[in-house]
Structures are given as structure tokens and as C-alpha cells.
Write a protein that binds this DNA or RNA. Structure first.
Length: 517
RNA sequence: GCCGCUAUCUUCUAAUUGGCCAGGAAACCGGGCUUUCAAUCCGGUAAUACGGGUUCGAUCCCCGUUGGCGGCGCCA
């Protein structure tokens, strides 16, 4: 019996939750699910100055929205503020700050062990001294690491010094002249010289744990078997392995995945603007599309499998670390747009309408400018009264055109308020004014007197084509379509009439005609 | 600066342990369908960073160069 697989994702709630983090979480999730293991969410919030409850909430909500469910960790009910300890899993608490505050914290236990065995020590250099040393080394073009003089003091000597000053910190006594190597599941054998690491800090004087140490302690306590994280953590790995060995823990399996890069090829981060999951959500990207898209960023199903649209279940089934790319991938929004469109087209109309409705309402409510309001004539349909059956028909029309849900407002606006007309846009090719007026009047005539049942698109279409005869269809249909929509691009006029009805269509044509006196 | 990772079209990527014309998708361009825009169908442009090896044969293995990225905190 092999040990059950346990993967984890450790976000730090110090800013909006980004797609890079979501991808790391996703890979851990896919790997765990593929092998019937557990995916653990642990919050790295020991940096109390920067960690914020709202950021943690953002992480939890974004992950849930994406469908990346964690088997253990904080829950949305267990908010950062209330600290109600409604967590899932038996290895809690899952917030580092809470673990550190436990009366018999494991951090303290392990720290004391290291100190006692002479594997860690108190460093009494002041922050100023450290900074100066660092600057000197940097200026001399040397590696800015700290190999501390206090490392060789006995514990008793250190305890004595503790009485003389309050400025000290706990460091790991990094063994010299050693090579630390480990196998990365994606990159193979990696090795590092211990001399280049220095005596790194592991805890503050009050035993408050620092990152590298905290990770090692918690991974042990939570029985983590696989560490799947961004390649920016490769340099941390030898430090963590040194700690693991000093504490006699088991070394987990490592896999360092490539970074997601911004358009400028640098690590995607805050400076790249709208990269937060929330922002994509607000713009109307579907969670399934983002899930699918980020899974394919740095990973593919492998040899000869050209599928790109893959469901969550398929992704879990196909996932393997062996097919993870080694080099970083640029987040290409254009391709995301395409994929989102694919998912939109795959939706049922009812579902899509439900998803689009808030975007439409928001658009109609927010885009009423003073200059706009006088044309906001109520054409038999008040904004507050968007009937579902009516809206569904509109959505059906826009479905093949939509890339993001947020586009629905702009695209379907004319169904709810009369458009503003641009004289030149109404004109088909070089049509003269009289010709244009004739065309619009012609359409108005047909609509008002010849169509008996506008709900039959076939009838509308046939009536029009019978009347137009063999003459240039563009002369009639282009001005009609623009009169109906006010836009240079839109669905066809017959489909629009079918939905908006002859009354409103007639009124729109009247307005368009007024442009030409 | 030092250490590490990495290198196939503009972008994401494929190429059974070295072997067809280097394949797919997005984007772009052209065409069909069309009043427009989409959707859809057909077609097209476009890449193994460079230099050495090893080999009958290298995108693949080795070395070097160059480029890109990451890390070097009492942050995580």
C-alpha cells in the first residue's frame, strides 16, 4: 500500500488573486484528483502586515468559482474575520498565523529541537549591520548571503547574549561544502552548492516562523507527499531540503511548473494589470473556459492528442506531470477569448440568458448619460421589465457572436432603447438621399402593411424578398438593418424584426427617416 | 554581480526510445455562404536561436555562445 497522495497550494493573501496562482492550484488539484488523492489549501499569512482578510476571501471565492475544490482547508463560512474554525480536514488549522499562535505550536517544538541540536542558532546582527554587509558584498560583486559569526557559539553562550540585546533572529546553520540535489519530476536532477546558500533566517526571536521553515514544518505535519509549485521556488528547494534533513522529515516529491508570463515575457504579476481572476470573472469569462485555458498553459494532453476543449473530468483523466512544459508560457488573452466563445456557444440558451442578464441590466443602468436620456424612449419595454422569454430570443441571436458575457449590453442595446443614427451609416454604398429615403419608406411600408405574423421569420423574409424582387438587396436590407440597430455590425434585420416586432421596427424606421427631413 | 531554470511559427504547443514535406490550435490573410458582423466550410502565410561535435542521419544526445526568465529579505 502506497501512502495516499496529498498535494497542497499555499497562497499568501497579500493582493488580488491572480491567474498564475489559480494555475498552480489547478495543477495540484488535477494531480491529486487524477490519483485519487487529496488537495489541501493552506494559507500563508504569517506576514501579518501584508495579509488581508479580503484577499483571503478573494482566493477562496475565486477558487470555488473556478471549480477547483479543496478537500482540506479553510471554508468560505470560516472567514478570516470570524475565525470560527469551520475548516475541512483533520490537520488544521490551515492558516499559518493560527498555527503559530497555538499554545503548543509545532513550529516552536521544531525550532527548539534545531537549537538544542546546534542545527540552528541565534544571530545577533542588527538589521543595519546586515544591510551594510549585504551592500558591501553586492558592491564587491559577490553573492549577498550571510554566513554568520554567531553560528559557532554554544547554545549557552547564545542564551547569555540574549540577555544583553533584544535584537536577534533564529537562523539555520547551513552546512558548508555540501551539494544538495533532488529530483524534479519535470526537470530531472537538480543540484546546488550549500556554500551559496548562507545561514538563512527561519524564525523571528519570538519563534514566529518564516517562510522556508514554516513550509517544511507544515508539509510534514499535514503529510504532504507532492510539492507542485512555480519554478520561482526552485532556489528555495535546497534550503527546505536542508531543514527537512535536519529535522529528520521525509522529502516530498517536487515538481516545479513553468511560470505564466505577461505580454512582455516577465513573470505575470500585479504590474500586468487586469490579471486577477476576479477581473476575468467580472468581464464575463466562464469559469470552465478559464479552467480549461490555464490547464493548457504549460501542459498538454500529449502525443497526437490535438484536443483543446477539455472538460474538467477529461482534464483530470488526462493530466500528467510528464507532459508539463519546461519553459514559461505567455497568457494570450486572444486565445482565451476564442475559447470562451467556444464555451458560450456550447451553453444552452436558457443558461446563457441567465448568465448574461446581470450584465445587460448593469449596462442599461450604467450607460444612461444625460445626453442619452432624451432618446431613452420607452418602446414598449421598460428596462426593469426584461422578460425572460424575450431576452432568451435575443441571447440566441447573439450567442455565436459573443466572446464575453459583458458584451451583451452593448450588442443588444437596440432591443431596449432607440438607437442614435448616423446619416452616413444608414447609407448603402453611394446611395443618394432620396434613394435612401425611398428604401426606408419601402421597408416601413412592408413592415406596417404586409407582414401579418412577424413571429414567423420565414414569412418576414419571404414577404421582403417577394417585394424586393431581383433588385439589389443591399439597397433595402442595409439601411433597414442600420435603422433597426444603429450599428455597423449586427444580426440580420429579419431575425431582429422577428423578435422586436413590427411596432417597434416601424418606430425605429420613422426615427431614421427623420434624419433626412 | 552570483546561482539556477529555459530555448520549435506572432502566441499556446505536437513530433513512439534520433528517421515522411516539422503537425494542430489561436491570431492574421484569401475564398465560399451573405445586406453587415459573427458562426460555419475551404484554402494560405509563418518556426526548430547561433556555432561546434556524436551519427549513415539531430528539433531530439553532448559542449559552447547568445537570448529570455527566476532567485539572492526579520516577504511569501
Amino acid at each position: 500500500m502506497s501512502t495516499p497522495i496529498r498535494t497542497r497550494y499555499l497562497p499568501s493573501p497579500t493582493g488580488p488573486f491572480h491567474v498564475g496562482g489559480a494555475r498552480t492550484a489547478l495543477f495540484n488539484y488535477l494531480y491529486a484528483k487524477k490519483h485519487g488523492g487529496k488537495f489541501i489549501l493552506r494559507i500563508e499569512d504569517t506576514d501579518l502586515k501584508r495579509s488581508k482578510p479580503e484577499y483571503e476571501k478573494d482566493i477562496l471565492e475565486s477558487l470555488s468559482w473556478l471549480g477547483i475544490e479543496w478537500d482540506e482547508g479553510p471554508t468560505l463560512a470560516n472567514s478570516y474575520e470570524t475565525r470560527s474554525h469551520k475548516e475541512k480536514g483533520g490537520f488544521g488549522p490551515y492558516r499559518q498565523s493560527e498555527r503559530a499562535q497555538l499554545p503548543e505550536s509545532s513550529y516552536k517544538k521544531y525550532l527548539q529541537k534545531l537549537l538544542k541540536e546546534g542545527k540552528a542558532f541565534y544571530c545577533f546582527h542588527s538589521g543595519k549591520e546586515l544591510k551594510e554587509e549585504r551592500d558591501t558584498l553586492l558592491n564587491a560583486k559577490k553573492l549577498p548571503i550571510h554566513i554568520c559569526e554567531y553560528r559557532s557559539l554554544t547554545l549557552a553562550e547564545q542564551e547569555t547574549l540574549k540577555d544583553t540585546t533584544s535584537e536577534y533572529i533564529i537562523r539555520f546553520k547551513t552546512p558548508l561544502e555540501q551539494t544538495i540535489s533532488f529530483k524534479d519530476e519535470i526537470r530531472g536532477e537538480l543540484s546546488f552548492a550549500s556554500d551559496l546558500i548562507g545561514d538563512f533566517s527561519i524564525a523571528r526571536k519570538d519563534f514566529w516562523p518564516l517562510y522556508n521553515f514554516a513550509v517544511v514544518a507544515d508539509d510534514e505535519e499535514m503529510k504532504i507527499t507532492h510539492v507542485i509549485r512555480g519554478e520561482d521556488h526552485i532556489p528555495n528547494t535546497p534550503k527546505q531540503i536542508l531543514l527537512i534533513e535536519a529535522l529528520g522529515f521525509r522529502v516530498p516529491i517536487y515538481a516545479h511548473i513553468p511560470l505564466i508570463l505577461g505580454q512582455d515575457r516577465s513573470k505575470m504579476s500585479k504590474r500586468h494589470g487586469d490579471t486577477s481572476v476576479n477581473e476575468y470573472r467580472a468581464q464575463g469569462y466562464l469559469p470552465e473556459a478559464i479552467f480549461n485555458f490555464i490547464a493548457l498553459l504549460g501542459w498538454n494532453p500529449g502525443a497526437g492528442d490535438n484536443r483543446e476543449i477539455l472538460s474538467k473530468e477529461e482534464l483530470i483523466r488526462e493530466f500528467s506531470l510528464a507532459h508539463v512544459q519546461k519553459s514559461g508560457a505567455i497568457f494570450d488573452v486572444q486565445k482565451l477569448d476564442w475559447m470562451n466563445g467556444e464555451y458560450i456557444r456550447a451553453k444552452s440558451v436558457a443558461e446563457l440568458a441567465r448568465l448574461c442578464k446581470p450584465y445587460l441590466e448593469e449596462f442599461l443602468a450604467s450607460s444612461v448619460s444625460p445626453q442619452h436620456s432624451n432618446i431613452l424612449e420607452n418602446v414598449g419595454m421598460s428596462d426593469a421589465l426584461i422578460r425572460d422569454d424575450y431576452f432568451k430570443k435575443i441571447v440566441m441571436l447573439e450567442q455565436p457572436r459573443l466572446k464575453k458575457l459583458s458584451e451583451i449590453g452593448e450588442r443588444a442595446e437596440y432591443f431596449f432603447r432607440k438607437p442614435e443614427y448616423d446619416r452616413e451609416l444608414l447609407r448603402w454604398k453611394n446611395m443618394a438621399d432620396e434613394e435612401l429615403t425611398k428604401s426606408l419608406t419601402f421597408s416601413k411600408d412592408i413592415i406596417e402593411s404586409r407582414i401579418t405574423n412577424h413571429e414567423s421569420r420565414l414569412e418576414v423574409e419571404k414577404t421582403f424578398f417577394d417585394a424586393i424582387g431581383k433588385s439589389d438587396k443591399g439597397k433595402i436590407l442595409w439601411p433597414l438593418r442600420v435603422a433597426l440597430t444603429g450599428k455597423k455590425a449586427s444580426p440580420g434585420p429579419f431575425e431582429i424584426i422577428e423578435i422586436m416586432g413590427i411596432k417597434k421596427a416601424g418606430e425605429y424606421l420613422d426615427s431614421a427617416l427623420k434624419k433626412f427631413g
